[in-house]
Write a protein that binds this DNA or RNA. Structure first.
Length: 480
RNA sequence: GGCGGAGUAGCCAAGUGGUAAGGCAGGGCUCUGCAAAAGCUCUAUGCGUCGGUUCGAUUCCGACCUCCGCCUCCA
């Protein structure tokens, strides 16, 4: 069937074809974080989505080049820098570092490139200059440079491709005020913002005087620098369709750097937002979670990852603590199944006949269909049940187990759970092992009272005993 | 006001013009000294409401209700 993805540009599900099919290389850019504070769980839904897109492209034999920017200069950041008396880089680096740690905790692969806006001023200024030269941008009286939507449209370009726009019907929001400056038209947006006293020491020099770049232009400049003037995939949250991505298209295509007939980006992917406990996430409702909030509650990154991947990316979904608890149970089942499989497979060789596992088939056809993760999970859990059944009935040979195990490892390269790896080799404290042995001796003596007493004692210390055909097996209790 | 998305079991969530995947929670059973783990099994005559089209709609159409997103630097 091949990978099919919904393209915001055409509002249709399309077969995904990379620009350079012969090389299998795929350029993908994801709008990264603004590092003014800790990222929240909603932000991470988008980043986990791009991670899965990247991983699935690899799974399908492509070679993705994943770029994600770090926005390290922006209004809120400047305000905080002023308030805290910090420097721009000192302030932003702490949140950038926290963000990258969170990404790792969530099992995300690091993007191949993570350009910072502040380190790409040359490219940004050069892009603005091109737009000025082509008369699509103008310097205003206040020293700022704006992009002219009207002139862009006069040049035959379409503004409003990702979202239908009707400027006459639009209700100007409050944010217009803060972004007024001295524009010719309300729809125009800033490419370069003239330095103001409030900016403090945050400024760069440019042909138009001291100032700093507008928000949208960094993504155009950096994406094209790393991926070329035309590339395959661009991702972001649905809120970025307008104005951010619309403006990116305008700037990038307005610069006229693409080859004739080629677009800036072929395929746009937008992830829906999530709700938390049935409500829009907000600090005042107390349902505003950062990853560290959830880790503090005893959940680990992969539970969060599982929940963030529980619904289709174009649907909003409800993120709940209950869901997180359920995720732990569900992941435990996968872990258990995979480690049984690994044990049975031992050193047997997988027969790789193009991987005939039902898991691979079900997973691939689900993901090919616009990344239908829910259906993909169904394939995973159907496979878990069937695999457990076969292991219970001892009807799985070592070689079959090895094949299924290999199929799992491939699928998990996409899911990114790392399931079944270490659950078997968990560190069991000596004291716990001793108690488990004592209990086993009591059981051998049919002293059930003593055995149960020891089991209760172990439970109080946070360990549960599973009596398996191979003897007792202490396991750490995960419940909160 | 404009544009767009969504309402499926206790909770989360797929899906389809022909009678409802999967996960969590809960009930019963098998196994077990008892458990745990695993497996089996039960739990929506029903898919926001009301109409319409159709042999047949949860799926198509219309109206209405509710929720959510964007409307100029929020993923």
């Amino acid at each position: 069937m091949g990978l099919h993805l919904f393209n915001t540009l055409t509002r249709r599900i399309e077969r995904f074809e990379p620009m350079a099919p012969e090389s299998r290389k795929v350029g993908m850019y994801c709008c990264g974080p603004t590092v003014h504070d800790y990222a929240h769980i909603g932000n991470f839904r988008t980043f986990v989505l791009s991670d899965v897109v990247r991983r699935y492209l690899s799974f399908r034999g492509y070679e993705p080049h994943h770029v994600m920017n770090i926005t390290d200069v922006e209004d809120k950041i400047i305000a905080r820098v002023g308030e805290t008396g910090s420097t721009l880089s000192a302030y932003t680096r702490q949140y950038e570092e926290a963000f990258l740690n969170d990404l790792k905790e969530l099992g995300c692969l690091m993007p191949h490139d993570m350009p910072r806006a502040t380190e790409h001023m040359e490219a940004i200024i050069a892009l603005i200059q091109q737009l000025v030269d082509r008369k699509l941008a103008y310097a205003a009286a206040d020293g700022s440079v704006y992009f002219s939507i009207a002139r862009y449209q006069e040049a035959g370009c379409c503004y409003g491709q990702l979202q239908k726009l009707d400027f006459d019907q639009m209700r100007p929001g409050q944010r217009v005020q803060s972004d007024e400056y001295a524009k010719d038209a309300i729809a125009d947006f800033a490419l370069w913002k003239a330095r103001t006293p409030a900016d403090g020491e945050v400024f760069w020099s440019s042909p138009w005087g001291e100032g700093r770049p507008g928000w949208h232009v960094e993504c155009s400049a950096m994406s094209m620098q790393y991926l070329g003037s035309s590339f395959d995939l661009h991702l972001g949250g649905e809120d970025l369709k307008f104005p951010h991505h619309e403006d990116e298209i305008a700037q990038s295509e307005g610069a006229g750097v693409q080859e004739p007939g080629k677009r800036f980006v072929r395929h746009w992917i937008h992830g829906a937002h999530l709700q938390v406990e049935g409500k829009k996430m907000s600090k005042s409702l107390g349902n505003y979670y950062t990853l560290r909030d959830l880790l503090d509650q005893g959940f680990d990154g992969r539970c969060v990852r599982f929940v963030l991947l529980s619904a289709h990316y174009r649907e909003s979904f409800n993120f709940t603590i209950d869901g997180l608890k359920g995720a732990r149970t569900a992941l435990g089942r996968i872990d258990e199944c995979v480690s049984r499989l690994a044990k049975l497979a031992a050193n047997a060789e997988a027969s790789d006949l193009e991987n005939q596992s039902e898991l691979t088939k079900g997973f691939t056809s689900a993901m090919d269909d616009d990344l239908n993760v829910s259906a993909a999970w169904a394939a995973v859990f159907d496979w878990v049940r069937e695999t457990n059944r076969q292991i219970d009935q001892a009807s799985l040979t070592a070689q079959q187990a090895a094949t299924e195990h290999q199929a799992w490892l491939a699928v998990d390269q996409v899911l990114g759970l790392g399931a079944g790896k270490d659950s078997e080799e968990e560190d069991i404290p000596q004291a716990i092992q001793t108690m488990a042995q004592q209990r086993q001796e009591a059981r051998n003596n049919r002293d059930w009272a003593e055995a149960d007493r020891l089991r209760d004692a172990l439970k109080e210390q946070g360990w549960r005993i599973e009596d398996t055909p191979d003897g007792p097996r202490p396991r750490r209790i995960q419940d909160i």
